[in-house]
């Protein structure tokens, strides 16, 4: 046997209640491998509130504080404050919320926490809809997608909310995107976030076979193609929002290939796919331009 690629410690056990091929579960497994056992999770209403198990059981080997839908960020900040009051400055407190609890319902609490720069890692595992309650649209649902509240006759026409830009506007010390298809990268980003004081925001693309109408074995495939088709860029924002680093070292694949096995896009016509593909490309170009622009401003860093 060769040396393990990622830490061998398992803090997420078997027997949990996630669907077959659940991306959110893979995200949790990697994150805990990076953070270690001295971690407390704060989980609002979301898939993970269920995945974890039934009372009084938990599939995860670290403490979890279940909280209300809109309060993940502030509850985490409160837990952190409580720990510090008791002299524990070591434990990492993580708010672990879905895209509904982040992009929509928990946004004001997250904004407040970020503005105060409270010392937590806020994780949004992004499966692009309210999957737990039955696949309703969220503001993270991408344009063109079917959900139960955006049926194929009225599929979502508004683009996915740019949560990364919103967080960057808060000038917090660390923002990153990650994908379950790139475990080493994800773990590196969590380790980096753990070492930084202040509010850290990590958004993980967690493909959802059930909600995306995707065959479960394709979870990782989708997580990879989302990145290589430029739909979900891998980036880091540091220096309090002043430095953007975009990962570009991949062989680009097509948008069409990415959406093909996803039933949530099956209704799209050729011209619609082309149009959305073009928008993906222009978003990507805008991102690269921003990266360049920020790098070109003298004295901006720090």
């Amino acid at each position: 046997m060769r040396e393990a690629r990622i830490p061998t410690e398992e803090l997420m056990g078997s027997g949990h209640l996630a669907c077959q091929g659940c991306g959110a579960t893979i995200a949790m497994r990697f994150a805990l491998k990076a953070l270690g056992s001295k971690t407390i999770l704060v989980i609002p209403a979301c898939c993970w509130a269920v995945i974890d198990g039934t009372f009084p059981h938990s599939a995860v080997d670290v403490p979890i504080f279940h909280t209300a839908f809109e309060t993940a960020a502030v509850t985490a900040a409160g837990v952190k404050a409580g720990l510090e009051m008791r002299g524990d400055f070591e434990t990492t407190v993580v708010a672990w919320a879905g895209d509904g609890g982040t992009f929509d319902i928990g946004l004001q609490a997250l904004s407040g926490t970020a503005e105060r720069n409270d010392d937590i890692i806020y994780v949004c595992y992004d499966n692009e809809a309210y999957m737990n309650t039955g696949i309703q649209r969220s503001s993270s649902t991408p344009v063109g997608a079917w959900t139960t509240t955006t049926p194929v006759t009225n599929y979502k026409t508004r683009p996915k909310k740019n949560m990364i830009d919103i967080m960057a506007a808060h000038a917090i010390p660390y923002i990153a995107t990650a994908s379950v298809a790139y475990p080493e990268d994800l773990i590196r980003k969590f380790k980096k976030a753990k070492a930084i004081k202040g509010t850290k925001y990590i958004q993980i693309l967690a493909p959802c076979p059930t909600g995306w109408k995707l065959s479960p074995e394709l979870t990782i495939w989708a997580g990879r193609k989302a990145v290589t088709s430029k739909v979900y860029p891998m980036l880091e924002i540091t220096e309090n929002g002043n430095k953007l680093t975009v990962w570009k070292d991949f062989e680009a694949t097509s948008f069409k290939e990415y959406i093909k096995p996803q039933g949530r896009f099956r209704h799209l016509k050729e011209n619609e796919i082309e149009k959305i593909g073009k928008d993906v490309e222009s978003s990507w170009q805008r991102l690269l331009a921003r990266e360049k622009m920020l790098a070109s401003i003298p004295g901006l860093e720090a």
């Binding site: 078997s14 949990h16 198990g53 009372f55 009084p56 059981h57 979890i64």
Partner: peptide, 20 residues
Amino acid sequence: EMPIRSMTLDNMLWNKTGSW
């Protein structure tokens, strides 16, 4: 019989998801 606070008492290994 329940704990005073809602808290975890054990893991989920009793749930043999292999049956799915």
